[in-house]
Design a protein around this nucleic acid. Structure first.
Lengths: 213, 213
DNA sequence: GGGTAATCAGGTAAAATTTCCTATTCCCTT
DNA sequence: AAGGGAATAGGAAATTTTACCTGATTACCC
């Protein structure tokens, strides 16, 4: 495979998802400028190659398989698109929902202004769920809520995460800050303390992607 | 694709060529220590991902195609059977998650104590999604979050709901109280006011069933 | 036409990968 | 058994990729 093939495949994958290169990068949890055209060749003409980690994040975020991406790289025409495995439902901005023409009299989505979203976007085969008990995460998560956790989803500052310490504690917090050596976790319930750990004190840190209500 | 998959595929490709990882790297024009086992995870446990340029060099040097390599990446998995329309993931109580025997060393669910939950439990064909904007529902819902709304889901006190008034306002609140004639809605953000409506003032009231994080 | 948000160009800093290096172990040949 | 070369561990330096940033442009909506 050649440098150009990789970048064309990324562009094609983005287009198939209805995304721009910047939108694809964002969807994958990367910086929106990661896939900029201007970053594909450096000022000295040298080719820039994305890491396989970036590629893995893109595939995870879009639900595309490596086979599918490989077909795009090699130029082999993809088979006729298969039906999406996850169901899509109408989506619209909350602020727009008050306008006219978006709901019928029964309160069902109607009209052409709706976008679509898959539900849920959990491509991660290792995803699991945790059922919340107690009030330590209120009001964000309440007793009885189920949260869907995706071990392989990229994590960024501000995300809600589940963390397990070497001591065996498991907690759900908001990732306030992550440096090379430490993570700072903000409690979801102001009545409970924030935490800060050395990375070596943590067994793993997984992102919460969906929560039941 | 996962970190382990990439490295296993490189090892397999090397073996097929009668080479060691160090021999494969050398063949590809890379430093012989590039693919050392010891370099696949950093001292701090962080996974190291080769660049797509390194991968391209390997494929060029060995004459292997990307399709062949992709088969090695994915080939260790059992062939995927057709997945159920609603996918089920492992579920366990949050309070239990800290106990021993529920996660393996990689942080993936393991052991017999897990239940299963479908995701998402949205059987309602009229379900739709709303994308949150602004901060009026923080910290429960944040700008950019997507909430899944199920018009036909039963609603109870304490549920988070979307309400539309006769005046065309749409709001997401928590259902505090519902009597024969009135509904009382509690704001999700304490900085915003609560509301109370006569049922006759409301067009509809739908329950929020899932929220992205 | 104006306002807003997304996209993108392109620079710099931070983080990550590869190269370079030394030391040790293993394997093959003599 | 000894010697030589390859392989590998692992650290530091060099190089490369991504994150962060500013500013300009484009697209979309009102």
């Amino acid at each position: 495979m050649k440098h150009e093939d990789i970048w064309r495949a990324l562009d094609t994958l983005a287009a198939e998802q209805g995304l721009s290169p910047s939108g694809l990068a964002r969807r994958a949890g990367l910086d929106p400028t990661t896939f900029n055209q201007s970053k594909r060749r450096m000022p000295d003409g040298r080719a820039r190659w994305p890491s396989t980690e970036s590629l893995a994040k893109v595939l995870l975020a879009t639900g595309a398989g490596l086979e599918e991406f490989t077909a795009l790289v090699t130029g082999a025409r993809a088979l006729a698109s298969s039906r999406p495995l996850t169901r899509r439902v109408p989506l619209i901005g909350f602020a727009q929902a008050g306008g006219e023409g978006f709901f019928d009299d029964g309160g069902y989505p109607v009209g052409g202004g709706w976008d679509e979203v898959s539900l849920p976007e959990v491509a991660d085969p290792h995803a699991y769920a945790l059922e919340i008990s107690g009030e330590s995460m209120e009001p964000v998560f309440r007793d009885g809520d189920v949260v869907i956790v995706s071990p392989n989803a990229p994590v960024r500052r501000g995300d809600r995460v589940v963390v397990r310490t070497l001591r065996g504690e498991v907690m759900a917090k908001q990732l306030a800050r992550r440096s090379a050596r430490r993570v700072e976790l903000k409690s979801l319930n102001p009545a409970h303390p924030d935490y800060s750990f050395e990375l070596t004190e943590i067994t793993w840190l997984h992102r919460i992607v969906w929560a039941s209500q």
